[in-house]
């Protein structure tokens, strides 16, 4: 489904450059549930931003369902993301001024979907995530777990092939986190490919594969015990 070949990302810092992703080679199959782990500053969120097409300042090759995303224009990539990717954030990023229902409807509103069809889809999502009673509430009136539930509902409303989650349970207590992770497992069973970033071993256990990042290098992959990296170079800045 996804192939990253020698993907690199750096930021200009004064006269030099700081590398956050180094020569990442990664293949993700349809239906996988991947967990990305590593210490702070390892490049986990940067990798997620690349996968989500939120970032377009990287080098290398990114193949998405046999399409060369790296050769696309910014607008084409955005179109690709709109159709195929859903995102769940650690701090939920619900819009404060919109109700639960309107937040869930938001991704649909950016597509050419008739209003009646959108209403049906939102109603289905409210049912599926059992938040019908909360549909007219604003995010500030919900608990953290409920907000993340809405965030997930919003991320999957348009049935994305790839769901990306950046520390989705980071702000939740353990019982709420368990519920969310169960939900991810269920979505994965239904066919959604999931990539999550987490520090939690418990959450990682829900996944089918774990990759490890350190200082921007991919240093471990449970599906590929010998990743094509040069560990000795890992700490060296080019």
């Amino acid at each position: 489904m996804i192939q990253l070949k020698n993907v690199e990302r750096s930021y200009k810092t004064g006269p030099g450059q700081t590398w956050v992703l180094r020569r990442i080679n990664l293949e993700i199959q349809q239906g996988e549930f991947i967990t990305v782990m590593g210490p702070s500053g390892a490049g986990k969120s940067s990798l997620l931003n690349v996968l989500a097409f939120l970032d377009d300042q990287w080098q290398g090759e990114y193949w998405f369902r046999e399409q060369a995303a790296h050769a696309m224009k910014r607008k084409e990539r955005a179109e690709l993301a709109k159709k195929n990717v859903g995102m769940v954030f650690q701090s939920y990023h619900l819009l404060d001024d919109l109700t639960v229902m309107e937040n869930i409807d938001l991704p649909l509103s950016y597509k050419d979907i008739p209003r009646s069809q959108r209403q049906t889809l939102v109603a289905d999502a409210l049912d599926r995530f059992q938040i019908v009673a909360k549909k007219d509430l604003y995010p500030s009136q919900l608990s953290g777990g409920q907000q993340q539930l809405v965030g997930i509902a919003r991320a999957v409303i348009h049935n994305p092939a790839l769901l990306l989650a950046d520390e989705p349970t980071g702000n939740l207590h353990s019982s709420q986190a368990k519920e969310i992770m169960e939900l991810f497992r269920e979505l994965n069973r239904q066919g959604t490919t999931i990539v999550q970033v987490t520090h939690s071993e418990t959450n990682a256990a829900y996944g089918t594969r774990t990759i490890q990042l350190r200082d921007g290098w991919l240093v471990g992959d449970t599906a590929n015990p010998n990743p094509t990296i040069e560990p000795n170079d890992a700490a060296v800045n080019r």
């Binding site: 989500a52 955005a78 993301a81 995102m87 990023h93 819009l95 938001l106 991704p107 950016y110 348009h158």
Partner: peptide, 15 residues
């Protein structure tokens, strides 16, 4: 932040 979320959810720059 709001605009970034909207963009991440599929809103184009024109929108």
């Amino acid at each position: 932040n709001e605009m970034a979320v909207r963009a991440a959810l599929g809103a184009g720059r024109t929108r």
